Simulated assay, not measured.
Amino acid sequence: MTDPLYGEDPEPSELSPAGLLYVPVRPGPSARATRLFRTPLGRRTAVGFTSERRLVATLGSEQAWIRLAEPALRALTAPLGVTTVTVNPQFTAPAPAPVGATPAEPVPAPALRAG
């Protein structure tokens, strides 16, 4: 059996793959674990970047990463109920402070001068 040609197939058999991605990871108990993020609406999503430059611009140079193909990233996160992969997000918010942590002092705005 041969795979259908995508130009002739109204519904391709695969989702449009993003290819090899730079995937943010964190240390785990026995190995690295894929970092999961939340969309603006609060749904969990796996994240991948098409270049190291894009990952560093969004998450910083200290962020550890591994290379994974999009189907592999989906396969790793599906058992966790994560079905969305976001490619090249451009905005991230800082993690919330732990419960009971003292909030940082606000930085005062510069004084306006009359001129």
Rank of each mutant, 00 (worst) to 15 (best):
M1R: 04
T2E: 14
T2P: 15
T2I: 13
T2V: 14
T2C: 09
D3M: 11
D3P: 08
L5V: 12
L5C: 07
Y6M: 08
Y6E: 15
E8T: 07
E8S: 12
D9Q: 14
D9G: 03
P10M: 10
E11I: 12
P12T: 11
S16Y: 10
P17H: 15
A18L: 08
G19Y: 06
G19E: 09
L20F: 07
L20N: 13
L21P: 08
Y22F: 15
V25E: 02
V25N: 04
R26E: 15
R26W: 02
P27R: 14
P29G: 13
S30W: 05
S30R: 09
S30N: 06
S30H: 11
A31Y: 09
R32S: 15
A33M: 06
R35N: 01
L36C: 06
R38D: 07
P40T: 12
P40F: 08
G42W: 10
R43M: 07
R43Q: 14
R44F: 15
T45N: 00
V47T: 07
V47Y: 00
G48A: 01
G48E: 03
F49Y: 13
F49A: 01
T50K: 11
S51I: 03
R54L: 12
R54V: 00
L55H: 03
L55A: 04
V56A: 06
A57S: 09
A57D: 14
L59P: 05
L59K: 02
G60K: 04
S61P: 11
S61C: 13
S61D: 15
E62A: 14
E62F: 09
W65H: 13
I66E: 11
R67F: 11
R67L: 15
A69W: 13
A69V: 10
E70R: 02
A72E: 15
A72M: 12
L73T: 04
L73W: 04
R74Y: 05
A75K: 02
L76M: 08
L76C: 01
T77C: 11
T77M: 03
T77A: 00
L80A: 12
V82A: 01
T83N: 11
V85I: 14
V85T: 15
P89A: 00
Q90I: 08
F91Q: 08
F91W: 04
F91T: 12
F91A: 10
A93G: 00
P94Q: 03
P94C: 08
A95P: 04
P98D: 02
P98L: 11
G100Q: 03
A101R: 02
A104M: 06
V107Y: 00
A109S: 06
A109F: 05
A109N: 05
P110R: 07
A111V: 11
A111Y: 01
L112W: 03
R113N: 10
A114P: 13
A114D: 13
